[in-house]
Amino acid sequence: MTDAHARDPLALLPLTPPLFHVLLSLADSDKHGYAILKEVESRTAGEVVLSTGTLYGVIKRSLAEGLIRASAAGSDERRTAYRLTAFGRKVALAETERLRAIVASARQLLQEPGV
């Protein structure tokens, strides 16, 4: 597996929106696939709806990159639950920082009042 400590989180940026959402949905607790779908949907008020195929593609790559790992807690005989790794958290934070910087510079450029 990938050594999370040795790698630079910035190397994986930018994240695709589905991946970012999946990482965010795992931030507070371990979840299995269906719970991730529901969480993403409710957190974005139904704006982002992941389909099964896309979700598991993201899960596969996240596993391979060491962003998440399978977790015993929350798994049942049908489903595996996933947990955000420390490296995954760093990457999600880095992406958040990247987006924040973009938003900030966009606001400045557009001179939005009240900033």
Binding site: G33, Y34, L55, R78
Partner: peptide, 21 residues
């Protein structure tokens, strides 16, 4: 439609998720 490896890793979970949905 998926490669067999992928199916083996995630097929059951995908089926279960889809049925719930």
């Amino acid at each position: 439609l998926f490669p067999s490896e992928f199916r083996g890793d995630f097929g059951d979970q995908m089926s279960a998720d889809f049925q719930d949905r």
